[in-house]
Design a binder for these strands. Structure first.
Lengths: 233, 233
DNA sequence: TGATCTTATATTGTATACAATTCATGTCCG
DNA sequence: CGGACATGAATTGTATACAATATAAGATCA
């Protein structure tokens, strides 16, 4: 029943996907995040055209967007390759994400209303259910988690944050290790969300911001343990 | 001797500018920042082609970059217009800039060396000279100020910050009011820079970060006074 | 052999023609 | 009159051909 993962159709968050440059963006992005792309891999526009099934013009549009999100990088001689980040850059990404999500949470706390609280609770109920099964349903968890954070971002009412944050969240390094999170990590995430909702309900922006900072930094810590914690793996 | 302002050639910070999409980017950007563009003004790709002197393909490249920097916005029906920010969005921009520049400064403090300190002092000597004249040389001040902050950003050694921050710094609202800064504001800026250098020399990242935060928030306050401080103007 | 220049190939950058969409105008019908 | 619909113009989106540039391979000469 929970077998089919969300493949490449992200219509929820993005545009209508009717235009060729949108499909190109989605397909190339999936190729990088979930496909056979590997960090440092050299790419050519023609290859990406085959992947996307459109001509070079919309592919170049998509490539520029992905360069901005730093999923693709361009060498001095204009050659494309899949981004390959250093450990320092990954750490930095988490640090920036913690700062910006904390800020977004503080803004959201100032603008939260009953409808928002209701929806946050609904989403987190779904998330909590996915976590508490004997074997956690990671796909549902990730989707509900994304919705929860998107909802907060919406309530932050900051176009600029809405532009900056998503590029820091959906990243190959995060996605690749998502399935390695322990059941306890997931349960703690659900509890963090509960406390966030309490902070929102109380209208306490400092409380909310602090919880969010802790939430992200714990994720960073889990990631650290999963990827670099033990050298026996 | 200091009469000719830097017009539209920003080769220092940017790419080689030999390609048509680069010239398009620079010219359209200048049109928005220093030219006759007005907030909310409707634009057409053809008009931008005339401004840039190139065809639509590189213009569309440039437009996408400027959309990402939020200097241009696209309506639901894909029409282009010059960005017109609300007061809240401007405040938010300063808040984000303060956070990110503080973070960059802390990183730079950890990585500062003798050569960097030397160059910071040189640039700030130039800036201090421009400030202390009977009538401050605002153009020289702005250029030296930009170099000072760019130097810190370089030493932060964070590709992601280097991508995010510039879009928050060079903005029409900032540029338009730069000439309204009082002489005291400029002198205080130079002093802030002196203290930053001292913090860097001491290797105290918290001190440096705090000075930078204060520096940006003072700029915000000056901007606030200049634009919304008095309703008698 | 090895270094440099030359030439061929591959890749990216630009212009233009055409398709798809959106906007504006005016007409028809109620 | 007033609103829905149709038609034309304006604008954006896509494909393709061509130009410019970078890489790679090979030839020439010391």
């Amino acid at each position: 029943m929970a077998g089919d993962l969300p493949k490449a159709d992200y219509c929820a968050n993005s545009r209508c996907m009717s235009r060729a440059s949108e499909t190109a963006y989605e397909k190339i992005r999936s190729f990088i995040l979930y496909g056979e792309a590997r960090p440092g891999m050299q790419l050519t526009e023609e290859l990406l055209c085959e992947i996307a099934g459109v001509s070079r013009t919309p592919v170049r549009d998509a490539v520029q967007r992905l360069e901005n999100e730093m999923l693709l990088v361009r060498s001095a001689s204009k050659r494309l390759s899949v981004a390959d980040w250093s450990e320092d850059e990954i750490d930095e990404m988490f640090a920036l994400r913690a700062m910006l999500e904390c800020h977004a949470t503080e803004r959201a706390a100032q603008r939260m209303d009953a409808g928002g609280l209701k929806r946050l609770r609904e989403v987190n109920d779904l998330l909590t259910g996915a976590v508490q099964k004997p074997r956690p349903d990671v796909a549902t968890f990730l989707e509900a988690n994304r919705q929860f954070h998107d909802l907060i971002l919406d309530y932050a009412q900051s176009p600029r944050l809405s532009k900056l944050l998503p590029a820091l969240v959906e990243q190959p390094v995060v996605r690749r290790t998502a399935n390695q999170y322990s059941g306890e990590d997931l349960i703690q995430s659900a509890k963090d969300h509960d406390e966030l909702i309490a902070a929102f309900a109380a209208g306490d922006q400092d409380w909310a911001g602090a919880v969010m900072t802790s939430h992200i930094r714990r994720a960073f810590h889990s990631f650290h343990l999963a990827t670099r914690g033990s050298d026996t793996d």
